[in-house]
Design a protein around this nucleic acid. Structure first.
Lengths: 337, 337
DNA sequence: TACGAATGTGTGAACGTGCACACAGTAGGA
DNA sequence: TCCTACTGTGTGCACGTTCACACATTCGTA
């Protein structure tokens, strides 16, 4: 045997304290119990070293007191995107306050998708927070079929409309910071756009276009796949090649902006002297850079806690109106533009 | 009612297919079943939309097919330390291959500690991988009392000896890279030491001392609390103040080294011309810096998968010899020294 | 006195599984 | 013919918990 001794159960407590299981249960969950019975049971609990079996409780109660945090793009998430960590911590804090356990599940491959789907359907969690969902992800289908209480952070346009979301106004924020760049006197403004297969990428580009209006020039948009540093370097090189007279850049993320700074340094351009650069996220990148980035602050922690609230409210039985909410994104103006 | 319809169970399948629960169970888990019964049951499964209830299975089997990944220091972990993400992905991949689910639990506060302890003891997981454990963490006590199969990544010196670990030779690696710095002709070498309340911090400092031997000068060690960028900036400033003629620095992490580069730039020193800088981790920081960092490569992904293997082997019933294993840490020589 | 309410306790059933066991039918060999 | 082996199926029980119910005692009051 690998386990030396069976774990103690309510039966063991009952036997040790000389009462019935029912009374033990009442001590644990509240109810009418005499002072002496309570004392005897509590003594017995510490004596036998009882820990409740959540699997049994979950089975009976149909409640596990746990909520899944499903990260659908682990590589970029953990390695490049500093937001995801803050979103997790925000969600964890909110769930913790409501006495729920957050369990985060990482989906890397198709194999993972299937296993996570099984896990979600298996009664181990009462709800799910989904970040970085792509259009038509199989996990989403599973969630809506199970009618599992859920919430998204961000929202691909054709997402299941019955599931609420919390996000930011990517288009509006992009438009606002581009406008500020324009107001600073920049004339030839380019953008390094990324992740155009996701709502965030699409909307940031749309906001950029809207701000420039008739001055918009498709030549001045570099399209890169990811929100990371390396993409920023490449994107900026492409922009410099396309328009040597460029004097402003809106990068779709801070990591990209940091890469752009590198490419500009390599090309001998000064920032903000020759070129003004602005980013998006207000992540740790923003203050690490030289010069520090002007950027759009993304309330990552709050996104996490709001998503958690959306799930918790459903668990309390509230029926939420479909749709979502957008959190404000103040512009943080530093030195890079 | 929040749930419109009860979830389908084996009973429902049995009723729909006109067989007994036992036969359904045999279809699901293997056994003697006639072809026609199997076909009828499989049809019934898709018809009623059956998903197995893992909570019930876990209760009966005393196996949840899930392993916890417990992160004890979320703030520094997710925001500053890029290793943790890779460790997670490595563990996830290994567990996934063995058809186990990884659930990661974040411990932020004392409140979290208690809740996570309950979760671990509750039968939702079969084992645990613990990263960034500090001496005397209450979670460790819980794990060893439960005799929960576990493994550590890293190992505080006074840790429970019965729990295996996987780590790196911090002292040896630190000694090796410091020696290389010496071999490059540097004379006045300092160190920015961090996290001296943890094994990793202590051992890296010890390795540094060992490499310098009699040339070691306690004046040339700046002691900072965390492995982050800001600490690097402050630590380097302190070293420059203590010894303006400093010509080499071993930073206890890449993030610290990046901060040190910043402080050196601010002080007008060239790298590697005036001062050679080396880091530790070979994280994404190393290649982002200007100049790119010479550093110690830490096999983060492999650490995660090894820890997962240690847990999986215990779950298979193997009895592991106590102690741990250390993974090799090649030195990566780039431009900063 | 008697009756209802409040307090305290024990018992049985159920949550959804998987497994041991019992049982039935068929086939093959002594 | 009978015994054994193999295939296929149904039933009861257990995992550890909570809840509904039944029952017991005490007390206040009509």
């Amino acid at each position: 045997m690998s386990r030396p001794h069976r774990r103690a159960t309510v039966h063991d407590i009952a036997a040790a304290a000389g009462v019935s299981r029912g009374t033990v249960s009442r001590v644990l969950n509240g109810g009418y119990v005499s002072a002496e019975a309570r004392a005897a049971i509590e003594a017995a609990i510490t004596e036998v070293g009882y820990v409740p079996n959540n699997a049994a409780r979950a089975l009976k109660m149909r409640r596990s007191q746990a909520v899944a945090f499903v990260a659908l793009e682990p590589h970029s998430l953990f390695l490049d995107d500093p937001n995801i960590g803050s979103i997790m911590l925000g969600a964890n804090a909110a769930l913790s306050l409501a006495d729920h356990q957050m369990v985060s599940l990482v989906v890397e491959s198709a194999r993972d998708t299937e296993r996570v789907a099984r896990y979600l359907s298996g009664g181990f969690v009462d709800g799910a927070i989904v970040v970085s969902a792509r259009t038509r992800d199989p996990i989403i289908k599973v969630i809506s079929e199970l009618a599992l209480p859920a919430a998204f952070v961000g929202h691909p346009p054709d997402l299941d409309q019955s599931i609420p979301f919390v996000g930011i106004d990517n288009a509006g924020s992009a438009q606002a910071i581009t406008a500020r760049l324009l107001a600073g006197g920049r004339r030839r403004i380019g953008m390094i756009a990324a992740a155009l297969d996701r709502d965030s990428g699409i909307d940031r580009l749309a906001g950029f276009k809207a701000a420039l209006g008739t001055a918009y020039d498709a030549e001045l948009v570099a399209d890169v796949p990811h929100y990371d540093y390396g993409s920023g370097v490449k994107g900026m090189r492409a922009l410099l090649a396309a328009e040597p007279a460029i004097d402003g850049v809106f990068a779709a993320s801070d990591a990209i902006a940091a890469g752009a700074l590198e490419a500009l340094r390599e090309a001998g351009r000064s920032v903000p002297g020759d070129v003004g650069v602005v980013g998006f996220d207000d992540s740790t990148w923003a203050v690490r850079c030289q010069p520090q980035l002007s950027t759009v602050h993304q309330p990552a922690k709050q996104l996490g806690s709001c998503a958690a609230q959306l799930v918790l409210r459903q668990l309390r039985g509230e029926v939420l109106e479909p749709g979502g909410q957008l959190l404000p994104t103040p512009i943080v103006w530093r030195e890079s533009a």
